[in-house]
Amino acid sequence: MIDTYLIPLLKILFVLNATLVGVTYMVLLERKVIAWVQVRLGPMRVGPYGVLQPIADAVKLILKEDITPTRADKWVFTAAPIIVMVPALITFAVIPFGPVVNLFGRQVPLYITDVNVGLLYIVSVASIGVYGIILGGWASNSKFPLLASLRASAQLISYEVAVTMTLVSMIMTAGTLSMVKIVESQYNAHLWFIFVQPVAFVLFFIGGLAETNRAPFDMAEAEQELTGGFHTEYSGMRFALFFLAEYANMIVVSSVATTLFLGGWLRPFPNIAALSFLGIIPSWMWFLLKTFVFLYIFLWVRATLPRYRYDQLMRLGWKVLIPVAIANVVVTGIVMVLF
């Protein structure tokens, strides 16, 4: 009873809340990091060094007037932010934060579930998130959101192909689709897969930037061209859902990249006994550290690189990333057969 219902429920509660808190603080971190890059201070007024800024933002967004445009499609307009947010959150069901640990005398795995199609589950759930963007733009009944949502969905669909092809080569290397087994196979291989599949890593990272609509691929919300993008007509909490979903997706991409390429919860060089003093840092801490590095790179890239032009973006996706990803799959296959 406790093992089948109570512990998973508690884990789900914990992961959901941790994600939402993490997401709000990602917003603060982003503002701080960009401020530091631009030699500013960033938010400083609310709390010491602005640490309470996310709470102030949340209160402001909840209290704001909730406007639905008169000629909008009400049901779809309401559903769109939810459709964006839910897939971003349920992806965490299969992400392994750590191995099975002993907690209060009970064997508790530090992941909600381990299904044998874990990686495919993440890809398929992420593909549902596109609907929120398309429908949000369409239901607003306004031209800039519609244009932005068409752009965004075209971009997401094209980069999804490249990312999925990249994942195929990863699956071939790991020999499994289960997220937990992927980490275990990195332990058995004595090596993080970033050293086995460097090309796949670069492709996955570029694709991840594009799939989360982050700079330099943030075409969907190009302020200068589209007055804010597909969520122009949204206000208050509904806008906040779109906004938070973007950050939740960043966390998803970062944790998937950590699991696939940086050995998940494993410490660096997991099989070298001389480095076993690194084991004093618990496994989930390693996972969070690696994920944080990815998140920081996301912000760093945003502060550094200018936005791509739309045609350049599509050309990069279809003429560079997808062929390279397919070539990577073929080369991986050849190498696996030969050695």
Binding site: V115, N116, V117, L120, Y121, V123, S124, V125, S127, I128, V130, Y131, I134, S153, I157
Partner: peptide, 17 residues
């Protein structure tokens, strides 16, 4: 499960878009 995931990925997430 494999079929279910592929159903979501290909039909719900790809073709219907």
């Amino acid at each position: 499960q494999f079929l279910a995931v592929i159903q979501v990925l290909v039909y719900a997430g790809g073709i219907v878009v």
